[in-house]
């Protein structure tokens, strides 16, 4: 039972919720605004990081280690997902000579 971290004593948990919401919304806006598939992928990473931070904050405030174990799982899955997704993007580039998602609407036919 060591000293309680200063952030947990002084910052209410609601501020972490608002901060994570803002980061998540920035990720969503990135997905909606950009057409470059790589930037869209990075915005998805931003959203994942927002969720990770919120899980960690709840875990630290509640002093329950399960949340941080979940964050570790999410990081492992995110690393695998990035490798698969970037491989897909490279293959799209080799077929279309571009990573513009506007071209991908021919997937409809």
């Amino acid at each position: 039972m060591e000293e309680i971290p200063g952030v947990i004593r002084t910052i209410p948990l609601n501020h972490y919720i608002f901060f994570s919401t803002a980061l998540f919304v920035i990720g969503i806006v990135g997905v909606l605004v950009r057409r470059n598939a790589l930037i869209i992928f990075m915005s998805v990473e931003l959203m994942l990081n927002a969720v990770n931070l919120l899980l960690t904050a709840f875990s630290a405030y509640r002093s329950d280690a399960s949340g941080q174990v979940f964050v570790f799982f999410i990081m492992a899955v995110a690393a695998a997902e990035v490798s698969v997704g970037l491989a897909i993007i490279v293959m799209i580039y080799r077929n279309n000579r571009s990573v513009d998602i506007g071209i991908l609407n021919r997937l409809k036919w």
Binding site: M1, E2, E3, I4, P5, I8, R9, P12, L13, N14, I17, T56, F58, S59, A60, Y61, R62, S63, D64, A65, Q68
Partner: peptide, 15 residues
């Protein structure tokens, strides 16, 4: 009301 830490049972070493 997101709750807050419980000073009695708080353990800072969980991370």
């Amino acid at each position: 009301d997101a709750g807050s830490y419980n000073p009695a049972t708080y353990n800072s070493q969980i991370g």
